[in-house]
């Protein structure tokens, strides 16, 4: 990795709100994130934490009528929050592409696979029709489809879930974009297929020098793939760092709690750790103070910041709020 290269994507104070009953509620709050060229970044958190909202904000996929975006997101020098729909058409698929959890709803059911992949290239490149078809076959082979000619002729519903996700990846990488956002790409797949798709994403990232933002709720998936990790809770990034830092020296109480609740070999017979309470809904999001604090009530209020900010722990490790310094698990104290 060339450290001198300018970052690919930098978000500053990025906020996204949704309109619910004429009020705007924040689903994304103060997200500051940097993605470097050639980087595999994972965003992890439970459902409702704002992961998809982040992806959709960056991809310009939000409905303007019921959402509001503020702050900034600069991608290759371009301010995305100010970009028009036509502006997005020029970069989506070419420089920036997305892979969804459910390829069936993202693919056009009435179009053959070849035509769907062809469309992206026809729009963005001046390759001839024959050249594009050759590239479709090459892409399908690269994503591990055994009979590319046959699959090229087929319709989405004729393919298995794993095959469809491979097709989505072929489409996403067709124009060798600089950044791919994959939102829970393997959540609907079996473990063996999941492992293959993750290997494929990793390979694409290394061979094409594409950066990837992998969004997932699965910590195992993160540990197996990411270089860097951002942990999200209730619309905020609460901790970010290298995959080693996050898994071996987690600091934020949320990160530490999540890691403790995974069923693992060493706790096969014990009770699993349970995080009290729930992720707050948008309407119930606390306006000030720490958002995770209600779920660790044994930590005194004085440990938390009123308006928590990110603290730098060195070597790229950041954690929101100062409560991590005083955090302990309630069970551990009893022992």
């Amino acid at each position: 990795m060339k450290k001198t290269q300018a970052p690919l994507l930098v978000t500053k104070h990025l906020k996204t709100s949704f309109k619910i009953n004429d009020h705007y509620y924040q689903a994304l709050d103060d997200v500051n994130l940097t993605v470097n060229p050639d980087e595999f970044l994972a965003i992890v958190g439970e459902s409702g934490c704002g992961k998809s909202t982040f992806a959709n904000t960056i991809m310009g996929l939000l409905d303007e009528h019921d959402s509001k975006v503020s702050g900034s997101a600069v991608f290759e020098g371009q301010e995305l929050t100010k970009l028009t729909e036509t502006g997005y058409d020029e970069i989506r698929g070419l420089k920036l592409s997305m892979i969804f959890q459910d390829p069936l709803s993202a693919l056009n059911p009435l179009k053959r696979i070849a035509n769907q992949i062809d469309e992206v290239m026809a729009y963005h490149t001046d390759l001839s029709k024959t050249e594009r078809y050759q590239r479709v076959l090459k892409l399908l082979a690269e994503v591990g489809i055994h009979d590319p000619k046959r699959t090229a002729r087929q319709f989405p519903h004729q393919l298995s879930g794993g095959m469809r996700q491979r097709v989505m990846i072929a489409m996403a990488v067709a124009c060798k974009p600089d950044l791919i956002i994959a939102d829970e790409p393997t959540t609907a797949l079996d473990v063996t297929i999941q492992a293959q798709i993750l290997d494929l994403l990793r390979r694409v990232q290394q061979e094409n020098h594409t950066s990837i933002i992998l969004i997932t709720h699965d910590l195992g998936v993160v540990a197996e793939t990411a270089d860097r990790v951002a942990v999200m809770y209730a619309g905020q990034i609460v901790e970010s760092g290298s995959v080693q830092q996050i898994f071996k020296e987690p600091q934020h109480p949320y990160t530490r709690s999540l890691l403790r609740s995974i069923p693992q070999i060493d706790n096969a017979t014990d009770d699993l750790y349970v995080i009290q309470g729930n992720v707050p809904s948008l309407q119930k999001m606390p306006a000030a103070g720490d958002r995770f604090a209600p779920r660790i009530p044994w930590i005194p209020a004085s440990a938390h910041e009123d308006l928590p900010v990110m603290h730098d722990l060195g070597d790229g490790h950041q954690v929101r709020c100062t409560c991590y310094r005083q955090f302990y698990f309630k069970e551990d104290q009893r022992a």
Binding site: V191, T192, Q194, A195, L198, D218, L219, G220, V221, A223, E224, V243, Q244, F247, K248, L259, I262, Q264
Partner: peptide, 15 residues
Amino acid sequence: KQLLEAIPQTDVDHR
């Protein structure tokens, strides 16, 4: 065996 091998693991040092 291959099913067990496919489980994602959180042991980042040995990935």
